[in-house]
Structures are given as C-alpha cells and as structure tokens.
Amino acid sequence: MSGMVVTGLGLASSLDDVVTACAAARAGINRARELAAFGAIDDDVVEVVPIAGHSCHPLTEGFQGDARRIRLGTAALGNLLAYSALQPEELSRTALFLNVGSSFLSRVGESSAGFPEGAPLESGPSSSLADALCQFGGLPIPQALRFVLRDDHHGVATVLHDACELLRRRVVERCLIGGIESFLERKTLEMLAHLRLLKTVGNPVGFMPGEAAAFFSLERAAPARQRGARIEAELVTTALSNEEMHRFSGPSHGRGLAAAMGNALEAIRDSHSGPVLVLHNLNGDPWRAMEWGTALVRLADWEMLREPRAWFPPLSFGETGAATGPLAVCMAVRAFARHYAGSPHALIAMSSYAGSKGALVLRDPRWDGLQKR
C-alpha cells in the first residue's frame, strides 16, 4: 500500500477536537463523568448509583439516535476540513467511507434473558447517515461515492483496503475515512449492563461507555505533495484476520489478534529496528485483556514488540466502538506531528467482539530528517 498518505484529521470527542484531544490523551487527561440518565444498584447502600461515561457534552446533549450521530459526525468532518485546509468545493472527487458499527452486541442482548418480548433494541444508525452528514456538513460528495460499513473496531482496516483500491484506480482524488459510535443511549446502556460489559459498582472490570466521531483523509502521495497538502503519515500496510472465539463463546487465546499484528509487522520487518508505537482498544473488559496478553505472548519473538510503547484510546475516551480505529489513527498521526511517538512506525491493532481483528501500520514521513538533526 505504499504511496498512500494521511493528509487530514478530524475528531469530535469528550476531549474536544483532534489537536486538543490528542494532547489531552497524551497527558493522561479524561473527562469521565456520572451519567445521570442511567445507573446500577449498589448492594452496599441498596440504591441506584449513576455509572461513569465519556460524553461529548454539550455537543450531543438532548440528541438521540441518528440525530446524535449526525451531531458527532458533522463536528468531526468540520474539524477535518479546518485541519487540512480543504474547502467544500474541493470534494467533488472525494469518497466518504463511514463505519457505524455492527449489530453483534444487540443481537446477543436480544437473544439473552432480561428483555421483555415486544421491546426490541434500537436497530442502530441507518444507511442514510452518510447522506445526512453530507447534507448538514455542506459536503458535495457524490452519492455514488458514499459508503457505509457496519463493522466494529476492526472496520478501519477493511475500509482502508477498499479506499486504497479507489485511489489506485484514480476513481477519486481522496477518501475521507471514519467511524461514529455512541454507547450512551439508554437502551444501549441497559443492554451492555445486562451483558456485564459496563463498569459499574457491581462489575468493576467492565468498560466505561463513550461516544466519538473520528475521520482522516487519505490521498495518493504524489498529487498530495504537488498541491502542498499537510502530509503527516504514510500508510504502510493493513491486515485482517478472524478467529472462531467471540466475546461470549469462551476465553480468547489471542490467535486472531496475533495473526493480524504479525502480518502487518511483516511489511516493516526488514526496514525497522527497535520498538514500535502500539495502539490497541484494551478497554477494561477482562476478555479483551486476556486476548491482548496472550497475543503478546504469541508475538514474543518479534523484537519490535518486546518493549513497545502501548497506548489504549479507551483510557481517555471510553469505549467508542466503530470510531476507535480512526481515533487511534488520529492519536498516532498527532504523535508523529508533535515528535513524541518515539518510533518511526505505529502499529494500530483493533479487536472486535465478534471475532474479527484488524491491524495497520503507519510511518512518520519526517523521521529520517529528525534523526539527522
């Protein structure tokens, strides 16, 4: 996948826009707060105690469903346009790839006990969400170039494969790639609590729910440089894998995640020495922690992973589902731009609960020049 570069970033999160949020995350800052609309019973005091989450207050206050996601998405896309100095009229030959999350957890929740018949969970964002984002964001992206993917965390690797194909064939000049997710809807929180995925007073090893929209723009390197674009990362490769075990079928042995990470690292085996910056969606769930730990054991022979710098976006932003992959890209690219990545390469590894895993490698285009200083 050589020849593809990241030329813009956009984020709407509990920590604000992409520059502010990534700086705050690096400093270990978060804005977790009590969610007054939902709580769990504390057995010690026999009363309902609000859970903590990472909301994009006040951006999403008072909005639900697709309206909430439109608020997140338009804010993030506006942030991307400002970051990359793109004007809306320049987007006529641009594709939009949007990941909105799968229905895996909803299906598990609906099929398990605890939900009365006739009260189904929300079906999730509709495929018209991309159209709404273009309409409200004033983006003249042709309808034929708006693509919606219903994948989870690993979806960023899937999308990159398709986007690179369009760019290689010169069908488009650039691709806007992103994800939107909110785990703060009441019905969603009820389902997550029932599945014992949420961090509550009675389940301290769950995750904190969050919400975010994250986007980045991808272009071919030559025309991007020709127009003087802001180039802060090069896409090296992507990798996908699957394993039979999912979140509710038994403990993960890390095979799928290790395969995705190892396959991605193969692309830089001969050109890189020393540790890489690793970003993974470890979120407080013991199942994912087991997967992460066993994957590292399987990859113990890789010198690049013996003492890696590891960052976990959910620590700062909460669980953001389909938005986590693009959010991790934003964090890695900002680390390159501000020279604190500590490595010329970033490995982004994403685990989805249904069994799919994705990984990608980014390279800092300024690294060689920095080393010569």
Rank of each mutant, 00 (worst) to 15 (best):
62 G>H: 11
371 Q>N: 09
172 V>N: 07
15 L>E: 01
123 S>T: 11
306 R>T: 10
72 L>K: 01
81 L>E: 12
76 A>Q: 05
98 L>P: 15
219 E>V: 09
339 H>C: 11
329 V>S: 01
123 S>V: 11
301 D>A: 13
89 E>R: 08
196 R>N: 09
71 R>K: 15
176 L>C: 00
89 E>W: 09
166 L>C: 12
72 L>T: 01
363 R>F: 00
3 G>C: 07
285 D>R: 09
124 G>R: 02
268 I>E: 07
323 A>G: 05
212 A>G: 01
281 N>G: 10
244 E>T: 14
318 G>E: 01
355 G>Y: 01
229 A>D: 13
249 S>F: 10
311 W>H: 11
139 L>F: 04
301 D>G: 09
128 S>V: 10
327 L>R: 01
250 G>V: 04
283 N>D: 15
11 L>Q: 02
183 F>H: 03
58 P>H: 15
124 G>H: 03
5 V>P: 03
125 P>L: 10
167 L>G: 02
358 G>S: 07
214 A>S: 12
361 V>Q: 02
115 F>K: 09
182 S>M: 00
265 L>E: 06
107 R>G: 13
1 M>C: 08
173 E>I: 05
126 S>I: 04
280 H>F: 13
312 F>W: 06
237 T>H: 09
184 L>F: 00
19 V>Y: 10
95 A>H: 13
359 A>C: 03
55 S>V: 00
221 A>S: 13
242 N>R: 15
153 H>P: 05
125 P>V: 03
46 V>T: 04
153 H>S: 13
287 W>D: 02
13 S>C: 00
224 A>S: 12
346 A>F: 03
87 Q>L: 12
101 G>A: 10
111 S>N: 12
202 G>I: 01
166 L>D: 08
346 A>S: 11
193 A>T: 00
10 G>F: 06
299 L>N: 09
310 A>M: 12
186 R>Q: 04
5 V>D: 08
317 F>H: 13
257 L>N: 08
233 A>S: 05
74 T>W: 07
330 C>A: 13
173 E>A: 08
45 V>K: 12
359 A>Q: 01
300 A>K: 15
331 M>D: 03
19 V>E: 09
139 L>S: 14
310 A>K: 08
188 T>L: 05
173 E>D: 15
61 E>C: 04
122 E>V: 05
227 R>D: 11
345 H>A: 08
41 I>Q: 13
291 E>D: 12
52 A>Q: 02
221 A>N: 04
327 L>I: 03
89 E>M: 08
38 F>M: 02
284 G>K: 02
